[in-house]
Design a protein around this nucleic acid. Structure first.
Lengths: 278, 278
DNA sequence: CGGGACGTTGACTCAAATCAATAACCGTGG
DNA sequence: CCACGGTTATTGATTTGAGTCAACGTCCCG
């Protein structure tokens, strides 16, 4: 939340709206490629420009309740999707990384039901809502990509329900980390070692637990030897074990090996933080 | 899972694929009207046929892992969307009623990640996947309706996250009932009095609590005078109070009137079930 | 009539929320 | 430069909400 701000403060280019700056324009072909559309019919896409928008860490992409006049495809960086209800509690609904579609849930209404914030230096493709129909006609693969991305977003949301429905909070955390790891792998990043862009409080909100519990669960998982954790630096040491652990649902049936692992370890084997592997 | 099979076994009409039976065909115009598309360009839609499929209570619409070769729009009835993981635990992900899109999450893969079951005598519009592209071209409003319905499904899923993220289980139940009430109202049904098509166990799974807890929470809400409950028959007696109660997030702040209500009532004011109002 | 599914209620226990204290870090500003 | 307030993370102590186990009543279907 700092590094990009604490750097040299001089000459900010402020590439917000579609100025004809150097960076903030790309082609539809770039977008389609990111969405995994092969080379099919990208001929037309080469000639269609799509605006980009750059956001610094902490910048807001959409405010809750704002007019929904565009869709966004994340090109780089990390976003937090959340809702603040009237009593001020902030409910995180998703974290989005490269390839994900933002604002799709607002298509069926006029204004965004949620807020979106950059957690990182980030860029998004901007597709104005009024252009969607035309683009679907002139660049058919875009219609396909939109469907795919919408479908993927729904799938992600369903996965989150699976995460939240887990009873034990350490199982929730394990499932969250596995899901995150998979997504990072899809982006070509290391699935085993990564830097969390979000704070404990935000993870806690997503998982529906207290933030202290997130801390403790990180400790518990690393005590089991499944993880190495140092603040926001995470390394998965035993993906197999983590997955096995994450499968615990309600009342782990009986004295399966899994259950035994959970209860035999006396809540903290040795120092909860182990030195970084290798 | 039985009634459609265990019924009279004689001359089953088997209205699965596009037979030319009396019931199982409708027009695209019917579908668009249900999705709230005005009369715009429905001229073309009138001439495009869409298959219907009828399901008895307990019948399966899609099996988990089945090939995803179609989308479904619920025309009538109720469906349960769920996932069974390898240890046999059944996680309910959504209940769907008229107007909702089923199978959208499978568009980005080959097979359905979830199972869908009719809880009721139900009918769905069937849109084969290979026809989607063509339909979007020949009947542009369909492309729009598909986007809208997909967006709506995502919104619903996000609302579910809000429900699940509530700390207290009685707050979860309250939020669930409010959401259900709204959806029923959208279908023209009474938002204040309705029959639950799903069992306690299924509600419990959706809410991520034990089924006994659902029972107790129904009791608690009716003890507060917010609800009348008799088995699956529900009447919301005080929608304002229910909404106020549902807003409790973590640690209900202080000794607000709401909180006092919760703790003052000695766990059961009078008989937890009150006679049906009026 | 008996078995099975479903719903309710009670008793007990434990996991996690809450309250609280501490430490580390950061940017600000004296 | 260092002191200061603010934010974040960790850890401990205490309490309580809800999961689990168990018993019971009802209804439906065979």
């Amino acid at each position: 939340m700092n590094s990009s701000i604490s750097g040299p403060i001089a000459h900010i280019h402020l590439p917000r709206s579609g100025a004809s700056a150097a960076l903030p324009v790309a082609t539809m072909a770039d977008l389609l490629q990111m969405c995994g559309v092969p080379f099919a019919q990208q001929g037309a896409a080469e000639n269609v420009q799509v605006n980009l928008r750059t956001l610094h860490a902490g910048a807001s992409l959409v405010h809750q309740g704002a007019l929904a006049d565009a869709l966004f495809f994340v090109r780089s960086g990390t976003f937090k999707v959340f809702r603040t209800d009237e009593d001020g509690y902030e409910q995180v609904l998703a974290f989005a990384i490269r390839g994900e579609l933002l604002g799709f849930d607002a298509l069926c209404m006029e204004s965004h039901p949620i807020a979106i914030l950059a957690l990182d230096e980030s860029t998004v493709f901007v597709v104005p809502r009024r252009e969607i129909e035309g683009l679907c006609k002139t660049v058919p693969p875009f219609a396909f990509a939109l469907q795919q991305a919408g479908s993927l977003t729904l799938t992600r949301s369903r996965e989150l329900v699976d995460i939240l429905a887990a009873v034990a909070s350490d199982v929730r955390l394990a499932r969250f980390l596995i899901q995150l790891s998979k997504r990072l792998a899809d982006c070509g990043q290391s699935p085993l070692r990564f830097h969390l862009r979000m704070g404990r409080r935000e993870i806690a909100s997503l998982l529906g637990v207290a933030h202290e519990t997130v801390s403790r669960c990180f400790g518990a998982l690393s005590a089991m030897g499944l993880l190495y954790v140092d603040d926001r630096e995470v390394e998965i040491l035993d993906m197999g074990g983590l997955k096995a652990f994450s499968r615990s649902t309600r009342r782990p049936v009986d004295d399966s090996a899994l259950l035994r692992n959970r209860s035999l370890i006396p809540r903290r084997t040795r120092g909860s933080l182990r030195p970084l592997a290798a």
